[in-house]
């Protein structure tokens, strides 16, 4: 099996990039593949917290690229998800501590041992973004149904394409079906009309995400979590499975629904 490096990005901060990285990564690993999560948000590390691994950090990404620590020693295995490992970000350095070339080398080293490498990208479009996408084969763009997040996602999609990452996959996070019913929220359809990307998944706004972050256990480990369920579907789709979207936010037959199905048919074929 050839391995894939996927950058998880958004442009705007606070839309759920880190949560998405942790949950998609954990869900992939629970299905069998070996998964490495890389926190590329140097200086503002958080992926360790979401995964409950903050007390087990010895070495970080900067130590590894500077040759001060072995990659294998810096990787932290998750307590509960067997195939999941984390390479934490450095907290005391800034984004210029790493170069795109170093990131490319790091990702190609990780590919020797892992099937999926997920890179949690910092918010913004500066050096940290350029570093995080340097080694990536594919990109997941996370957005929420808010104008500012969609606008930033559009810029990011343009920049990804300019860097040669052609078909970014969209995750729409924090959908509120009640607000959509009241016509007070942009729908997934509205977003797809503007952003020329493939839809990877739709995740509802869900309190269980906060609870699971409090506990340091990804929501995909909680079988009752609605958001967790959707993240599991996203992972299955990344593994090439044809998983239908729940009709929580749109009726089957809606355009985005059809597009999603078509896309996965194309992908498989």
């Amino acid at each position: 099996m050839s391995s894939t490096a996927i950058v998880v990005t958004s442009g705007k901060g606070g839309v759920g990039k880190t949560t998405a990285t942790a949950n998609i990564g954990a869900a992939l690993a629970m299905n069998g593949p070996k998964v490495a999560l890389v926190d590329a948000d140097i200086g503002l590390r958080n992926l360790d917290l979401v995964l409950g691994l903050e007390n087990r950090i010895i070495y970080d990404l900067v130590n590894v690229v500077e040759g001060r620590a072995e990659l294998r020693k810096a990787l932290i295995k998750h307590k509960h998800v067997e195939n999941l490992s984390l390479l934490p970000a450095a907290q005391t350095r800034d984004k210029n501590a790493v170069s795109p070339e170093q990131m490319r080398k790091l990702v190609s080293d990780l590919k020797k041992d892992f099937d999926f490498i997920l890179l949690d990208c910092p918010a913004g479009i500066e050096q940290g973004f350029k570093n995080a996408i340097a080694g990536a084969d594919k990109a997941i763009v996370v957005t929420t149904p808010e104008m500012s997040a969609v606008r930033d996602a559009d810029r990011i999609i343009g920049m990804l394409m300019a860097e040669g990452i052609d078909s970014p996959m969209l995750v729409v996070n924090r959908i509120r079906p009640d607000m959509i019913k009241r016509h007070d929220m942009l729908t997934v359809d509205d977003l797809l009309e503007h952003l020329k990307v493939d839809l990877l998944g739709v995740v509802p706004d869900d309190e269980s995400i906060i609870v699971s972050t409090n506990k340091g256990l990804p929501a995909v480990m909680d079988s009752k979590s609605k958001a967790g369920k959707e993240f599991k579907k996203i992972a299955a789709r990344l593994m090439g499975e044809d998983v239908a979207e729940a009709a929580a936010t749109a009726e089957p037959g809606d355009e985005w629904f059809v597009r999603l199905i078509k896309w996965f048919r194309g992908e498989r074929g």
Binding site: M147, D154, L186, H194
Partner: peptide, 17 residues
């Protein structure tokens, strides 16, 4: 509806961007 307003404003801002 605020959704329609958002859609229109978003379209304009994206064209400009």
């Amino acid at each position: 509806s605020s959704r329609t307003t958002a859609k229109t404003r978003l379209r304009l801002v994206l064209v400009q961007d």
